[in-house]
Each structure stands twice: as C-alpha cells, then as structure tokens.
C-alpha cells in the first residue's frame, strides 16, 4: 500500500501530520506498537527536517507485510557533508528554528537509530533524499 504526504518548508504547525496519519494507518493494520513508535518518531523527525531546511517535500510511505519503507524527498539546499550532518549534535538550523525548539542536531541520528535500514543522499542546491526502512519482524527486537 502506498500513501503520499506533502510537507511545506517552514510550516512547523503541520509538521507531524504525516506521522499522525501513518500512526493511525499502522494501528488499523494491527502493527506491533513498538514498531509503530519507531516509524512515527523517525517520520516526525524527517518531517521537521523538511520544514526546517527545505522549501517543500514529498513523503512516500510504502507498507507491506514485511516492512515499512518511507521515502522523503525535498527541494532544498541539500547537505554538503553528510557524515558531519549525521553526527549527533551537529546542526545548521537557523536561530529562528532553534528558538522554536527544533534544530538540536539530533534529527538525522535519531532517524537512523529508529530504522532498520537507512539511506541518505543529497545534491547541494537541489535537495535531499532519505530512505527509512523499518522491518515488521524487526531484528532490533531479537535478543
């Protein structure tokens, strides 16, 4: 199943819409709550990232019985140094964004922590592409 959501840059009020919707869908599908939680947290961070840095973005959520795959594509400045951006605490958020309580530099690391597979690619001046996979029979649960 596919679901698509649009995110506007700078619109923090509506950042969280997609994660709320996806949460409702996954609950209806009787997905394990621990897995839903990881999806929702990762997606919310992704939404906030688009709102904070990009002009606009599209989120595509693909659900099957094996995994949930989320693709986030934005039109924005892109990330010049992805390794640096992935470091916890590193942030380029503007002072305005920080004043709103966002931009602590934990977004990308947090997304990665909550996903089973995480891909990121970016073209400076064009935008950033994220792929987050959460497996339904998650390896993170097996001990």
């Amino acid at each position: 199943m596919n679901f698509e959501f649009k995110v506007q840059g700078g619109d923090f009020v509506r950042a969280g819409n997609a994660s709320s919707q996806v949460k409702k869908i996954l609950k209806q599908l009787n997905v394990d709550s621990a897995i839903i939680k990881r999806v929702v947290v990762a997606l919310y961070e992704g939404e906030v990232n688009i709102a904070a840095h990009a002009f606009n973005g599209i989120i595509n959520v693909e659900i099957d019985t094996e995994r949930i795959l989320i693709k986030l594509d934005d039109n924005g400045p892109g990330i010049p140094d992805i390794d640096l951006a992935m470091q916890p605490g590193y942030s380029t958020a503007s002072p305005i964004v920080r004043e709103m309580g966002f931009g602590a530099g934990m977004g990308l690391p947090n997304i990665k922590n909550n996903s089973d597979d995480f891909k990121i690619s970016s073209v400076v001046g064009k935008g950033t592409h994220l792929e987050i996979t959460v497996n339904l029979k998650s390896t993170k649960e097996e001990v």
């Binding site: 199943m1 869908i25 609950k27 209806q28 599908l29 009787n30």
Partner: peptide
C-alpha cells in the same frame, strides 16, 4: 482493548484498508 485494528491478521487488514 484496542478497537482500531481492522483485522488481527495484517495481510487481511491491508486488504480491508485498500
């Protein structure tokens, strides 16, 4: 006592959601 799920079985729930 969740009321929201469409079906216990995820595959069936997905069909119902479609």
């Amino acid at each position: 006592r969740s009321m929201v799920k469409l079906d216990e079985d995820m595959a069936k729930a997905m069909k119902k959601m479609e």
